[in-house]
Simulated scan of single mutants.
Amino acid sequence: MPSSPLLRPATPADVPVIRELIEGLAEYEQLRHACQATDALLQASLFGERPYAEVVLAEWEGQVAGFALFFHNFSTFLAKPGIYLEDLFVRPALRGHGIGTALLVHLAHVAVQRGCGRLEWSVLDWNVDAIRFYEKMGARAQDAWTVYRVTGEALTHLASGVS
């Protein structure tokens, strides 16, 4: 009988492996140059005084195989919270064992359990494997929406009130 992944909430002791998985995702997405995650930043953001996100780790045959990092958002139209999946990553050598599916099913369960109206995420348009996977799970692209982002100096400039 094939193994199934063990899912568990991350703990502060998992910070180094969470960072390692984030770096693996950054490599896969060809964005390693943009990855600034450190153990200290993750410790503060995930397990500090005000945790901003949650992490579920997937273990396969005794090793951490992947993760899902998520946080709550809010739908004004539904007047309900939602879950935003920031990252879902399975180590390339361990793909094909149902680990990504288990993580996504788990998050859907968490969303339903917490009374959320939706579970959503973004995917790079070139990542056809991920797109196929998500569509197989019942997800549909929201093509009418365009994501905007302000970071770095542009964020600081905007915060100063200068246009």
Rank of each mutant, 00 (worst) to 15 (best):
residue 3 S to A: 14
residue 72 H to V: 07
residue 45 S to M: 07
residue 62 G to A: 00
residue 129 D to V: 07
residue 71 F to H: 14
residue 98 G to S: 11
residue 23 E to P: 05
residue 11 T to L: 13
residue 58 A to C: 13
residue 58 A to Q: 04
residue 109 H to T: 11
residue 123 V to Y: 00
residue 159 A to H: 07
residue 48 G to C: 04
residue 71 F to G: 09
residue 7 L to Q: 04
residue 158 L to R: 13
residue 147 V to K: 12
residue 99 I to L: 09
residue 61 E to W: 01
residue 4 S to I: 14
residue 70 F to N: 03
residue 24 G to Y: 03
residue 21 L to K: 10
residue 101 T to M: 07
residue 78 L to S: 14
residue 50 R to A: 12
residue 46 L to E: 00
residue 150 V to M: 11
residue 133 F to N: 02
residue 114 R to M: 10
residue 56 V to N: 07
residue 106 H to P: 08
residue 162 V to F: 02
residue 13 A to C: 00
residue 158 L to N: 03
residue 121 W to L: 13
residue 86 E to H: 12
residue 146 T to R: 14
residue 13 A to F: 00
residue 10 A to C: 06
residue 86 E to L: 03
residue 74 F to H: 09
residue 112 V to W: 11
residue 59 E to D: 03
residue 42 L to A: 06
residue 153 E to K: 11
residue 21 L to V: 05
residue 15 V to I: 11
residue 151 T to D: 14
residue 57 L to E: 01
residue 112 V to Y: 12
residue 109 H to I: 02
residue 144 A to N: 14
residue 56 V to T: 15
residue 142 Q to N: 08
residue 140 R to N: 11
residue 130 A to T: 08
residue 141 A to N: 04
residue 18 I to Y: 01
residue 24 G to L: 03
residue 56 V to F: 06
residue 48 G to T: 07
residue 152 G to M: 07
residue 137 M to E: 15
residue 119 L to F: 10
residue 59 E to L: 10
residue 70 F to I: 08
residue 130 A to Y: 03
residue 60 W to M: 02
residue 66 G to M: 04
residue 156 T to R: 15
residue 39 D to F: 08
residue 136 K to T: 12
